[in-house]
Design a protein around this nucleic acid. Structure first.
Lengths: 127, 127
DNA sequence: ATATTAACTAGGAATAATTCCTAGTTAGTT
DNA sequence: AACTAACTAGGAATTATTCCTAGTTAATAT
């Protein structure tokens, strides 16, 4: 991955926000510094940065958002204002300590576990 | 919500599969019974059923899939074949028992907790 | 410093997923 | 049987994202 001013600013915009913005929001911010930047460039760079493990994608009700923080953390979504907050917790804490620690009222959660299924572990072929 | 043949067949198709299909896949299945059905009808019904708590939406890397099972369960995605499997577990089991119980090799997970943030709990106004 | 070139960019067209619109139909009620 | 709100098919519109092309530039070698 080569250095480019566009990628540098995309990354900096993302790392400087506490929010979990969409590509469109990042595009608007980056335009303040590089008015000629194109939306395709923002998407390309976000994908490259995410594929390179420098930022992460988060999935918000079928829409993609981005997160510049790479430490292990989870997200809390408010079902009323739809804001996404960062939370740092161990799994054991999920049902117990969140309300006290963060002031959140927890009504549910969605967990997706990732890894390799049995079938794929026993196959050598990379798809 | 009124009964319609279209909604009934959409629901039955979804409840009969073990997979977590997209709207398009459901559309193709329903067409076998109602060849004239339109994709918009499938989307409308899936949304109504999900909003009514009869089915659930699941979010697959920024794409929407549907799940006809409403019991509390989680999902396991194979990072190689991309299949999504149902898993029934308590949160405490996540890091411990999955590999043994299901034969999965766990490499990560994404957890989204839902509820009301402090700000929204103290506001009376419904947005 | 300059030349080289693979990786990049802007701009816009193309694609994919989903929602919206309209005129006609139908399930449930009276 | 008549009524009507909720539904439908079909297709246009919208939204999010990717793709394409000709020109530009960061990193490397000379």
């Amino acid at each position: 991955m080569r250095f480019s001013r566009q990628r540098d600013i995309v990354l900096n915009v993302l790392q400087r926000t506490e929010s979990h913005p969409t590509a469109e929001w990042i595009f608007d911010q980056v335009k303040r510094e590089i008015p000629s930047i194109s939306l395709g460039t923002v998407y390309r760079n976000l994908n490259q940065l995410a594929d390179g493990g420098i930022i992460q994608r988060i999935f918000d009700n079928g829409h993609v958002r981005y997160d510049g923080k790479m430490d292990q953390h989870d997200h809390f979504r408010c079902i009323r204002c739809q804001q996404i907050f960062d939370v740092h917790l161990r799994l054991e804490d999920i049902t117990k300590n969140i309300p006290q620690d963060y002031g959140f009222k927890v009504t549910g959660y969605a967990l997706e576990i990732r890894g390799e299924c049995h079938q794929c572990q026993t196959k050598e072929t990379e798809q």
